[in-house]
Amino acid sequence: MRLIPPDIAEVRAARAGNSEALQDLMARALPCVLQWCARLGGPRVDAEDAAHDVIVVVLTRIHTLAEPELFGPWLFGITRRVLAGHRRRRMFESWIPGLARTGPESDPHAQAELSDLGRQVQLALDAVSVDHREILVLIDIEERTEREVADLLSLPIGTVRSRVHRARQAFLAVARRLQLPAVVFERVREGS
């Protein structure tokens, strides 16, 4: 489910306050947002909670969107901010004994659907830096083109290209550090 290209006329109508256009736009954006939240949020973030918060921000801030053509990057920026907030909150809760959500149980729906392998990939992704995680999710998991990713992240395409290489290196380093099972690690080596 790859959001975008958005219907510019629909974005314009939503920005102008047309409720029907706004609801259509949200219905189209939600699957993509939910996937971003599940893939970028890591094991401690409840993806459905985060996706809900992203859509609420979109509903209340759509009138401030300057250029309808940039709806995709704008939506990704909101998702990024909301996820950063959720991750911060989880980290803050971990300060207080007894309040911390314990590992993978935070989002039971999503976790139930993850196999052991999926959970290990999620942990490895969670351990790399935010910018590397974004690149890996957008390019290697969602299979977007470098041009698309450069537009989504508002970065020059050269920066995206160099980041892809470093992100994969970082992921492999983490895979080694986390001691992913040999079979998984071999698959990584073969594939890369």
């Binding site: 893939r39 659907e113 990939v121």
Partner: peptide, 16 residues
Amino acid sequence: MKHLFRTFAEETRARP
């Protein structure tokens, strides 16, 4: 690496 990421992509797909 592709197999790993494909598995993860499939399992984190937005389900109805």
